[in-house]
Design a protein around this nucleic acid. Sequence first.
DNA 1: ATTGACATATTACCATGGTAGTATATCTGA
DNA 2: TCAGATATACTACCATGGTAATATGTCAAT
Lengths: 233, 233
Amino acid sequence: MSLTDKQSASLLAIDPKLPMAPQIYGNIRQSILNLRLAPKQALSEKELALMLGVSRTPVREALIKLAEDGLVDIFPQRGTFVAPIRVSEVLEAQFIREALEMSVVARVAELSDPVAIARLHESLARQKRAVDHSDLDGFLAEDENFHFILSVSVNLTRAWKVIQNVKGQLDRVRVLSLPEPGQLAALYEQHLAIVNAIEAGNSSAAKRHMAKHLQQVFRTIESLLAKRAEIFD
Amino acid sequence: MSLTDKQSASLLAIDPKLPMAPQIYGNIRQSILNLRLAPKQALSEKELALMLGVSRTPVREALIKLAEDGLVDIFPQRGTFVAPIRVSEVLEAQFIREALEMSVVARVAELSDPVAIARLHESLARQKRAVDHSDLDGFLAEDENFHFILSVSVNLTRAWKVIQNVKGQLDRVRVLSLPEPGQLAALYEQHLAIVNAIEAGNSSAAKRHMAKHLQQVFRTIESLLAKRAEIFD
DNA sequence: ATTGACATATTACCATGGTAGTATATCTGA
DNA sequence: TCAGATATACTACCATGGTAATATGTCAAT
């Protein structure tokens, strides 16, 4: 199927004053993560450039970065395709994220910075509102922000970049399971437990709750493998 | 100072049959890591392309990737420069590497795969030879391989990529301290302790030795900050 | 001597054309 | 009907030219 058929609406928001390559990257990335661009869908430089109203060069740069994220596969002289969801890569992304975020949250608990804790509580309040309104997109954005606050509060911006990169593989799986009832509330409760452990300065409890939180993905994969086999490779 | 003056010899090994951008990336990266390209040195697309006998496009792609690694700073419409060694980024790279490699080595110890253990012993033997011959470059290559074996033996190739990326920040510091006498032998002993813990299936001991091993960088930074202040920012 | 305005040079960024390599469709021969 | 050869279309990759933004050097005015 051609890209143009299904995609023309969402990919048009490019501000010509700002650097184009990062905008294009974010644009395509979002479309891949929410599965509007399906796994194995072909992505041609030329067609994307035409749709976005830019030249092929910044599109190419965006695709290269997506390939490093493992979200697209580039086959030289053959084509570029949205990467299928590979279970092994999802599990590895989970491994990396868990290793990093457990170390991060331990450090946050050790420092026990009041400003950071206040920010986390503000985030929790916004999450609660999203849960109560069943605002899925709002919750997802705030979930991202919650984990961002954790890393940045202990000055680990590079670690956050790594987490964010591998998180792409996980988000693509999670978006398939989150609409199920009760999921959002469960995630909120886990975040709350993490913050409570941080506030108590209990780093080992913080790590334990974080691990439990992140390992949600295992249950998700299991149930999806049966239902949506076609999007896996 | 111009690039052309000091760099013409080392940057010329480009094979035109293979994709150029990755070759250029590795080429420049190596030169930055061994400090032949000094921190704050200007790198212009045009000049690098001229020296390497290629066009500016693949050079640009290589520089973008190096910027993501934090090894160069790109200032749009102003110039691209070798990044100064920023202590905060070195420490964060250390944090990330430690979090990941401790989780990796724990998994290696839990699996206790005989093939992996054999490979690690072979690597140790090569390291021993390099130490006995005071072969610095040989040891560095085998050190890289040793850590590579750990990740790959438990199928964590993406984790290895992340480790390798952040390791750049650490290598640039380490290359300044490694020629000191006794350093190589100490690293070998630490590798040996790690393998022994793995062989015993003792994952917590493996983690402990790995942490001690990696934290060598703290002592290095301390001694360098005094002696070579000009390469820090 | 110092400051401000202006001209020049240099930069990264984007657009676009050319090329070698690969897949697919079409044709040929049995 | 089907296998193999050929032509066509498509791809990512590289080369190169144009452009707006920034830095630097020059010179006049005070």
